[in-house]
Design a protein around this nucleic acid. Structure first.
Lengths: 194, 194
DNA sequence: GCGTGGTACGAACGATCGTGCTATTTTCCT
DNA sequence: AGGAAAATAGCACGATCGTTCGTACCACGC
């Protein structure tokens, strides 16, 4: 790996980190440069514009998300087990970034009202994620794990809602029961599909 | 009402409006002053600091929220009807601010990682809201609408999660089924309490 | 091992940030 | 109606924003 792409990846990792704490808008080239111990201009040269930096931060983070959440879950058998695996991997991933919050949820809230390249990337990512979940539900139906009349898109909606609710309870309210509640609600959701 | 508090309220209304679009951090005294057609310094004099402006924006918005969502719902009979009323009023309130997003959900995502006065205010508001919901559930239990073993805090968790999920589906994904999904999930939640 | 191109830096730009000060205007009470 | 008080504006400040430019360095293929 050339020196260029090497520092580039280091920048993007730190950027995702910082952005998930302070937000993708509040991220500035100056404080990011300080964080990675580079000059503003040296860092800037890698991306050409702040918006490009933001977009690439999201894309790089999404790649890592797929690597650490989606891909591992694919090792579970199709259908319901895989859905449970996605759920567990997501939780694990959240624990790793222990207290740093989810960049996607944060950015989504920030940019849902601001048309532009960033919003477009986010919407595309979210759509892929939702499709992945509803696809897994469809498979669970054909495998016979779920009833035939289960609405897979509705499932994805509720599933995503629970994850958002968990983040809120965990990070904003510091509710020690957050995970317990999440699991209870998730179990109830699964049970409703049998 | 004196001139001062009058412009002050106008500022706070516009501020909540603007903040719910671009975020509470991205809100600047300059663009807010332009929006309300005042000078930067004239506006600034009302609050003394940006943080105070942000805090008061949240508090003023919370007052309006109580006026337009919580208070009207109190006219419904205690218990389950009131819970349904809160749900409907929340949806109505969202429709009024048609496409402007929820300031509280947005700000919560922005500040859940940033200790300070703003986070404190948000946490306090969220806690009051959750307590209001779980309190209504408790009442529904004593009224006999809900089973005795319903966990009111878990209900509040799921309820809030659904509202967040709806906002996400509606605003980020522009999903035309968002409301349908929300209602279906809410009905399922209620049904699980009978 | 040398040259070339990719990589990083320092300085500077105009703009805007939040925040003071000092006038000036407007409101409100007697 | 007049005068104190409140409200608003004007101007300036240091800091920082994203971005540009010229230049130095360092890596790496020949």
């Amino acid at each position: 790996m050339s020196k260029g792409t090497q520092t580039r990846e280091a920048i993007l990792a730190t950027s995702a980190d910082l952005a998930s704490r302070i937000g993708l808008q509040a991220l500035t080239i100056g404080n990011l440069a300080t964080e990675v111990d580079m000059s503003k201009s040296g860092l800037f040269a890698h991306f050409g514009s702040k918006e490009a930096l933001q977009v690439e931060t999201l894309n790089a983070a999404a790649e890592r998300f797929v690597d650490r959440v989606v891909r591992p879950a694919l090792k579970a058998p199709r259908g319901e087990p895989r859905i449970r695996a996605v759920f567990e991997e997501w939780l694990n991933w959240g624990r790793k970034h222990s207290m740093k919050g989810c960049l996607f949820l944060q950015s989504t809230a920030e940019f849902d009202d601001q048309p532009g390249a960033i919003r477009d990337v986010l919407e595309h990512q979210q759509r892929a994620w939702m499709k992945m979940v509803s696809g897994a539900v469809d498979r669970a139906k054909t495998e016979g794990h779920f009833r035939d009349d289960v609405n897979s898109e509705l499932f994805a909606f509720e599933f995503y809602a629970l994850l958002m609710g968990y983040q809120h309870a965990h990070r904003m309210m510091r509710d020690p029961n957050a995970e317990t509640f999440l699991r209870a609600a998730f179990d109830r959701l699964l049970a409703s599909c049998h």
